[in-house]
Amino acid sequence: MYRIAILSGKGGTGKTLVSTNLAWCLHETGLRVHLLDADAEEPNDALFFPPWEYEEKLVQKRVPSVDLQKCSVCGECTRNCAFSAIHVSPGKALVLENLCHGCGLCTRVCPQNAIVEVPRTIGKVRFGVFPGGMHFSEGELHIAEPSAVPVIRELKKTLDPSAQVAIFDSPPGASCPVVEAVTGADFALLVSEPTPFGMHDLKAALATVSTLGVPSGVVLNRMDAASGDYIAQVEQMGGTLLGTLPFRREIAVAYAQGKLFAREFPEYVPFFEELAAAIWKEGKA
């Protein structure tokens, strides 16, 4: 299996556009493709495909629950918690579940054995097959939950072992959810745009993937007549440019309407086939 993580640094540069269209084009060539939407804060890939049948699994983290009958208010839990997530006072215990990382340390240091861990649902993963046979999974973080990392971790477990290509549509940014989505990938495809914003954030994303030791390549999206300089900038920052997509209103409109533009306009299919060929060449063997 070959795993491709698609990321961008800056939001809105075309991760979802490239992920969905690349997955569809590779599926059409007869490969067994599994598309995974790892942008669990804002999962959108499913909008581009017809309704699908899926199984759903809750993602839970463990949080402490204090038995006040046993608690001696010694404060050992509070002193040990690195995240200031548990506070006790006579007759009361305050667990800030949003701050809790679920490390379990409080349960182990409590001399009264007064703390147990209870599950708290923080999101869900769905996995199934689109009409036409492409495998698909998506993660969804519940509203006001701070970290998508456990959701992405569970999402990875839904990967169909018989898939030949797995495409992970990753979150924006360059911090922990991105690290979780990219870890284990054979190749990172970075989608950026020809603006100073795009270049600034591409640099951060390149630094993240190189720190993780994942080979990478760049696609520049929304190229226009004044974009030429940005190709040189990508190369200067050590990026390998694998392809460019033009700024065309027809692409923007297809995307806006929830359509795969490569299906609407077959002249773009070779772009994705060539992109895949470049990825096989540049990535881990």
């Binding site: 939001g11 809105g12 804060e41 804002e42 973080l141 509203i143 006001a144 939950e145 701070p146 970290s147 998508a148 979150p171 924006p172 940014g173 911090s175 959810p177």
Partner: peptide, 10 residues
């Protein structure tokens, strides 16, 4: 602000 709904956004 930040994109998304997670910790940097909130």
């Amino acid at each position: 602000g930040a994109p998304g709904t997670g910790c940097p956004t909130t």
